[in-house]
Each structure stands twice: as C-alpha cells, then as structure tokens.
C-alpha cells in the first residue's frame, strides 16, 4: 500500500500538471527567484547552479538571476574586494548609487559590480556630489575610525562602513543629518558543511534642535549546518539608545561604546539561548528521558493493555 499510494499520488499530481496549463515563464522565474532569495549566507552560487539545472531553461534562469542577485547581495551585505586596492566594498542599499555602483565612503571610491558573479569589476573616484559635505564628513570619518577599531577587535572577519543616509549636504550646525553604521561578518566553510553571517545596521540620527543623537540598531545572525541534515539558526534583534550631541571625536567614542555594549549583550543573550536549550526550551518539544526517568518498559507493554482493560471494565479512567 505504501508504495502504491505514493505512486497514486504522484500520478494524480502528474495529471493535474498536465491538465493545468504549463507554468508560464513568469511563474517559473518567480519560483527560481524564491529559491535564490532564500539561499543561506554564502550559498547563493550553489543554489543558482541547482535551480538552473532544475529549470533547464537558461533564458528564464538568467532573468531570475539578474533580478534576485542584486537583492540578495544587498540584503546579505556581502563584501567584495575592489580591484587594485586592499580594501573591500560593502554592497548595501545605503551605498547604492545605482544598481551596479556602490560607494565606499572610506576610500571615497565607487565600485562597479557584477551582481551575478559577485565580483567588483572597476573602481572610480567618487564625485563631489556623491560625497557628504566637509561638516558631515568630519562626523562620519571620526565614527568610521572608531568603529573600524572596534570591528577589528570584535570580529575576526568583520567588514564595516559608515554612510551618510540623510542630510549629506548640511554645511554647518543647525540642521539634522543621519549616518548609518553597517557591520557585516561572514564565514563560509562549505568543506565543513557550515556557513554563517552576522549583520548589524545602526541608524544614527543627529538631532540638532534637541542636541540629541538617537541610535536604532538591527542585528541578524544566521548559521547553517548541513552535514547529513539541514539545521539553520535565524536570530534577529533590535535596540534603541541615545546620547548627547558632542564634537565629532567625542560622539564617535560614545556611539562606538553604545554599539559595542549592545552587540556584546546580544551575543551573550544568544549564548544564553543556546545554554537554555537542553533543559528548558528543547524539553518542551521532547524530553531526553521519559517522565519516569527510566527507559520505556517495552517488555511489560502487555501490562498496559491489561491495566487498561481492567480500568475500562471497572469504569475508571478514560
């Protein structure tokens, strides 16, 4: 019956497919994009290879890839080495000049990228219009220097960038502007069946009128282990904080301390979640041992049935 019923279901599914109109190219493309966008950190190239072979239609694949890769690269905030330089550029929506060009504020260069190949093909110096005013740049640059020190200490393979998200043309005190700190650390070791990424985005709003700087942080941590199985961690958290408007150097130190504090706390809470797994959280799914704390008495199962019969006859129990 087992294999029969599977066979039957398969035939039914097959028939439905034949009856239903063949999937349109658009539907196929949307399905391919779904797979690409759901690729775990560092695995989109593997997923691309598989979905290409499942589709068996290079036109559909190419359209899907050209639409999905830019979105994936930006949301995973991948870092690419800039040709002829020793720095990486981060692919993020904050640094996006157009779909294929991303600014690296530290080196004041714009990198041209091939999204599907995930490489940087060219760099050019950024134009004045693409860069913040000297007033904003003082704050950005001081913060970047402090964040770089912190990331160098805390993340063995971290890449960071500080962008101006709003008010880049503000020339002097009196107006608001906003910086964004982005930290991205990825680790790919397919030979050990393990990949992961840590991404943080900190929005820093400089409110001139109240002389306060507001901080909003979002963190996302993913890990995938897939040796003879498929297990994924998907963790997210958000934070808010604020500090006083100060000189560029002082505020850079305050902001970096805030970010360091929240990220350290968050790592500790992730560790705590793991430590709590065996005895609390996981126990609510399945216990390690039965409530009786001894293995199940399979030898005496007859007794259970007998006890049940007796209880039934006596009208006790359910």
């Amino acid at each position: 019956m087992h294999s029969n019923s599977r066979q039957k279901m398969a035939e039914e599914v097959g028939n439905q497919e034949e009856e239903a109109e063949e999937l349109s190219e658009k539907q196929k493309k949307e399905i391919a994009k779904w797979f690409l966008l759901n690729s775990p950190a560092g695995e989109i190239q593997y997923v691309a290879k598989d979905i290409r072979s499942v589709l068996n239609d290079d036109n559909v694949y190419n359209t899907a890839a050209s639409e999905a890769f830019p979105v994936y690269n930006k949301s995973h905030m991948i870092s690419l080495r800039m040709p002829g330089k020793s720095e990486d550029v981060l692919i993020t929506s904050f640094g996006e000049i157009n779909e294929n060009e991303y600014i690296d504020p530290r080196t004041a260069h714009v990198a041209r990228v091939d999204h599907v190949k995930q490489v940087c093909t060219k760099v050019r110096p950024a134009t004045d219009e693409e860069l913040p005013s000297p007033y904003v740049e003082d704050y950005r640059c001081a913060l970047d220097a402090e964040i770089m020190k912190y990331v160098g200490e805390a993340y063995p393979k971290g890449v960071c960038s500080v962008y101006c998200a709003r008010g880049k043309d503000v020339e002097e005190p009196g107006s608001d502007f906003e910086l964004v700190v982005v930290i991205s650390a990825a680790r790919h070791s397919p030979q050990n069946f393990c990949n992961g990424s840590w991404r943080s985005i900190w929005n820093v709003e400089f409110k001139d009128d109240v002389q306060i700087v507001e901080v909003r942080g979002r963190m996302q941590v993913d890990a995938h282990y897939f040796e003879e199985g498929n297990v994924q961690l998907d963790a997210k958290h958000e934070f808010q904080d604020s500090t006083l408007f100060q000189s560029p150097d002082d505020i850079a130190v305050s902001l970096t301390n805030i970010i360091r504090h929240h990220e350290t706390e968050y790592l500790a809470s992730l560790q705590a979640s793991y430590v709590n797994l065996p005895d609390t959280t996981f126990k609510d799914l399945r216990r390690k041992l039965p409530v009786t704390r001894t293995l199940f008495p399979w030898h005496n199962t007859l007794q259970f049935s007998l006890t049940r019969d007796i209880s039934k006859e006596l009208g006790i129990g359910k």
């Binding site: 993340y155 063995p156 971290g158 840590w198 941590v221 560790q271």
Partner: peptide, 17 residues
C-alpha cells in the same frame, strides 16, 4: 551536534567577550 555547530559558527563570527 547540529545546534552545537550553529553555535560554534556564531562564536566564529564574533568570539565571546
């Protein structure tokens, strides 16, 4: 093993304090 490996990965990305 499986949860442990994802935890190891987190600690590789950002080693504990």
């Amino acid at each position: 093993v499986y949860f442990g490996k994802t935890r190891e990965m987190v600690c590789t990305l950002r080693p504990p304090a």
